[in-house]
Write a protein that binds this DNA or RNA. Structure first.
Ligand code: NAD
Ligand code: NAD
Lengths: 207, 207
DNA sequence: ACTCAACTGTTATTTAAATCACAAAGATAA
DNA sequence: TTATCTTTGTGATTTAAATAACAGTTGAGT
């Protein structure tokens, strides 16, 4: 299958989560307009995305919920589950760990890293916190593929470099410091201040 | 000035923050390619954004840092400063409050809301936490314009409705439940699970 | 059997965003 | 002075994403 568009991948993740609820409620089929209503987008957008992954529904009953969930899984998840580390076990980092721990997805946070001795050798929602210096070792040992950065901004570059050297495949950076990494590593950045300033702008100017 | 593109607004927020550091370091002028390097984007992107806000630099020295910061301020900020509420003083909500409190921007978080009696009548990084039922009253009284939702997902719809009724102008929703609001209110949604699943996909398939 | 209503799947079009390509201008150096 | 270098500003083009438009299918109702 061809590489999917960015936005399609984001929506597939959301379709899946919406459908897990649907399934839990005992419904086995779903129409594009039902998915669309949940996410407040258009049905045609839903159908197009589903077309892109090569799945096809039935005319009378729409999509088979379990099948579609399954297929989205084969696209997003890796077979054995994806193992994730959080770097920086501060207020944001520990909130993230606790949060993901509650979900049952193929993503599991299996390690935290910090430099503060007070944070080390503790469990955060069952996840052990290791010293940052051991990052290379633990990433390999635990077969960790992705990392979330939640350290102070001043540390971002150093952390990113260590992660890349350790062989991480993807990084989600919640720090306000933009980083750049080898094109081998997929990088996603998100900055809450930017997001809130954007809300401020459009709330002020209307849209 | 015409309404700016979404992405331009996001970048302007980042340019400003980058330039605040520049200014602190004693530099008074900056070239498009210097800004671009900080954010890891192209210089032409920077120039185009700056063109859209009608500012113009000088050929030999690039942009005047203070002037550009000032102008971005008039675009994004509101004169008197923007007042923000956080609904849900849990792990994410309180992390956000603490975080924003440290920055000195025109955005200030001035109130939290919760339903849990244990959370009420306390200060989170100096911000008072009010009972959710008083939201209408406090939003008006405190002249709050924007809100961040960080309650459990099950509460999102109810919270959003209350916020809209209270006359909020913009909402940033960190809950995984999509909401829809009157087109009078600007809505931005961000879901960490989606973000991390996107990283998983592109780390797996390469991009 | 025929018609209608309600879906899906897909092509064509539009809109939004990013990039390319280059003219214009000011400083510097020969 | 004139050539050259560096940088901005912007029209033209390309790419990515969303939307529109509609053909095709199937079952229900008659
Ligand atoms: N708290 C929020 O809601 C929030 C929101 C948006 C962005 N952020 C960003 O997230 C980051 C973390 O924020 P926070 O509020 O959790 O801060 P925090 O200070 O609570 O946590 C940072 C943690 O990182 C650890 N750390 C420092 N250097 C490290 C290193 N080299 N390796 C590993 N760990 C290291 C610290 O010991 C600390 O535990 C910041 O960059 C902040 O800008 C936070
Ligand atoms: N913690 C994270 O890192 C994280 C990451 C991504 C998304 N989220 C989302 O953010 C939301 C909050 O997560 P959290 O980890 O902080 O949860 P949490 O349980 O720690 O906090 C939720 C808070 O909301 C309060 N609350 C419940 N109903 C309310 C209501 N009607 N009005 C006001 N407050 C109410 C609760 O009393 C609690 O204090 C969840 O929807 C979660 O999906 C959290």
């Amino acid at each position: 299958m061809k590489l999917l568009p960015d936005k399609t991948v984001e929506r597939l993740s959301q379709y899946r989560r919406a459908m897990l609820k649907t399934l839990a409620s005992g419904k086995h089929h779903i129409y594009s307009h039902e998915i669309a209503n949940i996410l407040h987008i258009t049905p045609v957008q839903v159908r197009r995305d589903i077309m892109l992954i090569g799945y096809t529904g039935t005319l009378r009953h729409g999509y088979d919920v379990s099948e579609l969930i399954e297929i989205i899984g084969t696209i997003i998840d890796s077979e054995e589950g994806t193992r994730v580390a959080v770097v920086g076990a501060g207020s944001l980092g520990s909130a993230i760990i606790r949060y993901f721990n509650g979900k049952r997805t193929k993503l599991s946070i299996v390690a935290a890293f910090d430099v503060n001795p007070d944070k080390l050798n503790k469990l955060y929602a069952g996840v052990p916190c290791y010293p940052f210096e051991k990052i290379q070792e633990i990433v390999k040992q635990e077969n960790i593929q992705l990392a979330v950065i939640a350290t102070p901004a001043s540390e971002t570059a150093k952390v990113a470099e260590a992660l890349v050297n350790a062989g991480i495949k993807g990084i989600l950076n919640y720090t306000p410091s933009p980083i750049n990494v080898s094109s081998q590593v997929y990088l996603e950045e998100y900055d809450m201040v930017t997001s809130l300033e954007k809300v401020a702008y459009f709330a002020k100017h209307g849209k």
